[in-house]
Amino acid sequence: MRILADMFLLIGATFTLFGSIGLIRMPDVYNRIQAGTKAVTLGSISLLIGISLLYPQWWSKLLIIGLLILITNPLGSSTIARALLKSGVQPWKKVETNTPEENSNG
């Protein structure tokens, strides 16, 4: 049980890390929101599962936290994206070039 819980905690932490890397590497705000939302949602749910395996008596509160994250996290992201689009922030477009791309500068 302990090992399973640790696995979930590790998976959650890893996806949250990927989300953070995405926030830095993505070229524009919309893609950053995408990286942030998805990774953090699954990451936190995985963390919650891990915690509920460690402390089974907390399951009802953890379930509520999970539900609220599932509903509010994507909603908040779309609201931010909507506000950005309304205020005129254009989505990033890749410039097509003939030369092979050197895009690894982060």
Partner: peptide, 21 residues
């Protein structure tokens, strides 16, 4: 949701940043 995260992790970690938004 799981697929989305694996997909996003792949995009984020690959050096060429494969995006066509």
């Amino acid at each position: 949701l799981i697929l989305a995260n694996i997909d996003m992790a792949r995009r984020v970690l690959s050096p060429s940043l494969p995006l066509r938004p």
